[in-house]
């Protein structure tokens, strides 16, 4: 039996949930970033899978989306990590529990 689109989507959903798990439950800012990156990777997997299983796969739309998404998430990671360092310099912690300046 060859894998169907469904299976890919379920794997992608699992990857997304794991990313969400990391982003939600870990205290360290870097973990949150890792989680977000995992979620983005899951989205990319969706793009590629949908492109591959689409009726007209000769148009590289999904691939293009994935490429741009990778480029943008690289930018996001760079800025995010820079912010982690900046926050660490300022507060001497990267524990997001202690970063609650925006508390209402």
């Amino acid at each position: 039996m060859t894998p169907t689109l469904q299976i890919f989507l379920i794997v992608s959903a699992a990857l997304f949930s794991i990313g969400l798990l990391a982003a939600l439950s870990r205290r360290h800012a870097i973990f949150i970033l890792i989680g977000i990156e995992l979620m983005l990777a899951a989205a990319n997997l969706n793009f590629i899978a949908f492109w591959r299983f689409a009726p007209q796969p000769h148009q590289p739309t999904g691939v293009m989306f994935a490429i741009f998404s990778i480029a943008i998430s690289a930018a996001e990671a760079a800025v995010g990590l820079a912010m982690v360092i900046a926050v660490y310099r300022h507060y001497h912690t990267t524990n997001v529990d202690q970063l609650n300046q925006l508390k209402g």
């Binding site: 939600l24 439950s25 949150i32 997001v96 970063l99 609650n100 300046q101 925006l102 508390k103 209402g104």
Partner: peptide
């Protein structure tokens, strides 16, 4: 009550989004 939701904890915000 509403302001209690604004904890400043990004993870809680993210959880609410989920």
């Amino acid at each position: 009550l509403m302001s209690a939701a604004h904890s400043g904890q990004i993870q809680i915000y993210l959880g609410i989004v989920a």
